[in-house]
Write a protein that binds this DNA or RNA. Structure first.
Lengths: 350, 350
DNA sequence: AGCCGCACAGCAAGCGCTTTCTATATCTGT
DNA sequence: ACAGATATAGAAAGCGCTTGCTGTGCGGCT
């Protein structure tokens, strides 16, 4: 039925062992023999049996990439960059590895199940992207899983995610706090004193860190925050739209709205416009991440650029052991404030 | 070192066979025994060895999803929907399958290599999304691969991709031609007579079909097309930006620009604005796909909505054998014209 | 000339699981 | 109470590959 190593061996008149060695190229084989084998492989259209190979060699060429939302370019860009370095077909790496991205949908259980599935497949490496969920039991479960993966020889890298203590996982973390701080500092510098904040889901680290940075800026400027100024939502445009209307209802005198990310900011812009408010004359808007579309918004979005592709590439290289992990296993990656058209001097402050 | 089935069996005082049956749940096992086994599994923290299992059972629980560009929401949305139905962890499907998305970057070789890799892993199913490359040798190679996959028992589904003849692959195709026709008809109906077209990469089916629809509309209206009105590019905003400037240079009297997709349209809008042209007063713009951000553009984008999530979900179900494939193995999925703010009556036509 | 070492090739023992076939209780019906 | 059916557990034969160890022939060395 299906062609096996033995068939190839028979055809090439060599032993299965030799065929295996030709295919893996990690053992001396005479050129003439090699050629004969390769010809047989070709003629028979032989395809290695991955599971069998993985079983015998006790390793696999699978690399898992976990993302929260595959439809969100934030993750797509990172995943693409990681995959580019993993090798995958065409990657600059030699060995062919199957980089697979797994969509957790932000659900802790799914995350855990995927990790188990990857563990089951004896994945060569795993990269977890995006913020973690701040639920103690879950965090512990994930940490335990990561520890176990590491023990089994799977390299674990966190990309854009806070370090996981007591784990051998390498962490490339985004400095969300610092970026948010710089962003709000900028707004305050323009003269804003009443700033609404549209946060992401409460339980996520990213949400908390960005909010903390925002609040640190307020505190530093001596602005007392009104609890009505913060609304929690999701990381999508719809959430930004709804939250903005809510914010406007609570305090129509807001002069700026800081969004959890660019998509949310986009929704916020739409809501403001529908409410008859001009950006930035009436209300300034700021996003986070600097996704490709941000520059094309009208007005273009003031935001914090996160080097997603670079971070992903680095994570990929580290996962493949092609780059030294940062000292201490943790690196903080800074964002860059991008001041654009959506932020301006508040009305009245001239 | 690592815990195996045998260890669990020993601990539960049963045979390995019994443990396997408990885990797979496809053979009667007494409740008391099952419980004992499960307890042992738990205590030992046993994780099944995927490769070994796949080897013995001659099937795997891997499902491959091929996308052209993982950073593009067009693919992200489809991939997410497919994955949702594949089961994956948390999916409504019971069995846990590892849905993996592979990023081909639009490269034919990568596509082929990924297919081989999936064949090597004995994937349970493969879903190919997005347009195909119109290169005869490559198309033949892909068709051969798909045939081989199908022979090996892998279910093959094409989602948003033209049918592959001589293949058992199920195809859910987008009616790009029809959608483009409707879109340009709309523009012509508004009074436009000089329309620029920003196409995608030349060699892609999607590009050709959309362009054909556009031209069919022109022909039906008796408009003779000027070759200067078409520029080929890529499916991203940058390409739209550049192409628009080029179009404007070639013929400043254009009153409308039809873009290959929404991202391209976004870039086109930016270029027009930079050129001091108003949308739609001076130039109308139209996109394709209706990605989430399209409605938030300023003005909001006239485009053709493609039911990406629905199509993906359906493809996923078909791939899992949970839904009957369409008659003849091919279904055409229509888009819906979304008339919004970016298209209007051309200047002078009042 | 004779011996050692090297460069290859083959043997065979698993890797950890699934599954067919077989064995042993435990029922069921009359 | 006994034959036949039923339910459940085990033995063992692989699945297709990798790899440590064992041959074998050859050139180079003294």
């Amino acid at each position: 039925m299906t062609v096996t190593l033995a068939d190839v061996a028979a055809r090439a008149q060599v032993s299965p062992a030799t065929v295996s060695r030709v295919l893996n190229g990690n053992y001396p084989v005479a050129a003439s023999t090699r050629e004969r084998v390769l010809r047989a492989v070709d003629e028979l259209d032989y395809v290695l049996n991955g599971p069998a190979s993985a079983l015998a060699a006790a390793t696999s060429d699978l690399v898992g990439i976990l993302v929260n939302d595959i439809a969100d370019p934030f993750f797509g860009i990172m995943a693409g960059a990681i995959q580019g370095e993993i090798g995958g077909p065409g990657g600059r790496a030699g060995g062919e590895r199957l980089a697979v991205v797994c969509n957790t949908g932000g659900s802790p259980e799914r995350e855990l199940t995927y990790l188990t599935l990857l563990q089951r497949q004896r994945a060569a490496a795993v990269v977890l992207t995006g913020g973690a969920v701040e639920d103690a039991p879950h965090a512990a479960a994930v940490a335990a899983k990561l520890r176990k993966l590491a023990e089994a020889g799977t390299r674990v890298v966190l990309c854009g995610r806070p370090p996981a203590p007591d784990t051998r996982a390498i962490a490339l973390t985004f400095d969300n706090r610092g970026g948010a701080r710089a962003l709000t500092d900028h707004l305050i510098g323009l003269g804003h004193r009443r700033l609404g904040y549209i946060a992401g889901p409460v339980e996520r680290t990213t949400t908390r860190h960005r909010l903390e940075g925002h609040r640190a800026a307020l505190a530093a400027a001596g602005i007392e925050e009104d609890p009505r100024w913060t609304v929690y939502g999701r990381y999508d445009r719809r959430s930004g739209h709804e939250a903005t209307l809510e914010l406007l209802r609570r305090d129509p005198s807001l002069t700026a709205i800081v969004a959890a990310n660019d998509s949310v900011a986009l929704g916020a812009c739409a809501a403001l416009r529908e409410s008859g408010l001009r950006i930035p004359e009436d209300v300034s808007v700021a996003g986070f991440d600097d996704l490709p579309f941000s520059i094309d918004c009208v007005p273009s979005l003031t935001t914090v650029r996160l080097p997603l592709a670079e971070a992903g590439a680095r994570a990929g290289r580290v996962a493949m052991g092609r780059e030294e992990p940062p000292l201490g296993g943790v690196a903080s990656i800074r964002g860059e404030l991008m001041v654009r058209g959506s932020s301006g001097v508040p009305r009245g402050a001239q």
